[in-house]
């Protein structure tokens, strides 16, 4: 019951939050020099044509009016059209957002699978070899740029060894993509029983997921290590030792108490990677949402950028809500 009230209270603020985010983004984008009309019509456009296009796009109105019109359309789930793709932003994003989500989700799962165990073992045995490895790993992965690491992986695994498909998009051109249900190629190919597509999509996912996963395991590792260390020294761990509980049980208690911090860092990474994975997306020609937004910014294509920001904001809010629900589940003190 308490949880429902809490969710309800959170949802009330979602609307104002989104409008605020859109407003700030809108104003920032207007600050960037660049006239969409000039970009669209090219160098040989006539003044007359430019003026007509500006009126058509509503660019001759005041900023307040422009924002008002935009908001009104957003309310009807019309995010405008991208002049680069000449497609509605909603349908563009419907294609690209899942691509990014699939990539980021799998990468973070991998990062968790690497970072958490290393952190736990490293915290339990401070002089062990795992700890030394974890320290070096954390340092190295924190220092390497992800796109460079992606290029190295491509060079080794594709160029030299040739064990992965070409780093061009999510699927080979020769493969028939599965019908679009969830947007995730893996899930969609399983649903439609399209095994060649599943294998091919997995092959394409391998390198970018490896890249992002290995790099982003570092912050998860560091957070797990330091929190776990603190929890193992906490009073309740010492007391559990005094009660003669086996070291494994003590460690499990400490881990459970460390989970909230780990979940927090994962949620932050998740929100960050939606846009932050863009360099890796470019390296692998992923065609994801980040790439789409960056193209929009570079070409004064306003609608894709605003659409991307809106989607990301909604996603972040959903993630934070889920995180709060997980806190509820783990920690009785928050109930």
């Amino acid at each position: 019951m308490q949880i429902l009230t809490y969710i309800g209270r959170r949802l009330i603020f979602v609307g104002p939050q989104l409008v605020g985010i859109l407003l700030v983004t809108f104003l920032l984008l207007k600050l960037i020099p660049g006239d969409p009309a000039v970009m669209m019509l090219g160098p040989f456009a006539t003044d007359d044509g430019l003026a007509r296009l500006r009126t058509e796009l509503g660019l001759d109105r005041s900023i307040v009016e422009q924002f008002g019109i935009y908001l009104w359309r957003v309310l009807h789930w019309d995010l405008g059209t991208s002049w680069q793709t000449t497609m509605p932003v909603t349908s563009d994003l419907a294609q690209r957002f899942p691509a990014t989500l699939e990539l980021v989700t799998l990468s973070l799962l991998l990062a968790l699978a690497i970072g958490m165990p290393l952190g736990v073992v490293g915290a339990r045995n401070r002089n062990g070899i795992v700890r030394k490895f974890a320290d070096i790993y954390g340092l190295a992965a924190g220092a390497l740029p992800d796109f460079w690491f992606g290029l190295v992986l491509i060079f080794i695994l594709y160029t030299i060894l040739g064990v992965v498909p070409a780093p061009l998009g999510r699927l080979d051109f020769t493969i028939i993509p599965p019908p679009d249900v969830t947007g995730s190629l893996l899930i969609d190919s399983v649903i439609s029983g399209n095994w060649p597509a599943l294998r091919n999509a997995a092959g394409h996912l391998l390198l970018p997921v490896l890249t992002l996963g290995l790099i982003n395991a570092a912050p998860i590792l560091k957070m797990t290590l330091s929190t776990m260390e603190r929890m193992l020294e906490a009073d309740f761990s010492r007391y559990a030792e005094m009660c003669g509980l086996p070291p494994k049980v003590v460690a499990r208690k400490a881990l459970r108490n460390s989970l909230p911090s780990v979940i927090t860092i994962v949620s932050v990474l998740y929100g960050f990677l939606i846009g932050g994975a863009v360099l890796v997306e470019i390296v692998f020609s992923w065609g994801g949402a980040g790439q789409y937004a960056v193209q929009g910014v570079l070409n004064a294509d306003l609608n894709p950028v605003l659409g991307f920001v809106l989607y990301s904001a909604i996603l972040s809010l959903v993630i934070y809500l889920i995180v709060d629900l997980i806190y509820f589940a783990i920690d009785p003190r928050t109930r």
Binding site: D235, Y239, A240, M242, C243, L245, N257, I330
Partner: peptide, 29 residues
């Protein structure tokens, strides 16, 4: 420890595991 030699500590609210119920913590031992 805990079986032959047991310990009663001070400040028990800080020493009990915050995430486990009283029953679970007695049960653990």
């Amino acid at each position: 420890r805990g079986r032959d030699i047991a310990m009663i500590i001070s400040n028990p609210r800080g020493e009990l595991d915050p995430l486990q119920t009283v029953g679970q913590q007695i049960g653990n031992v």
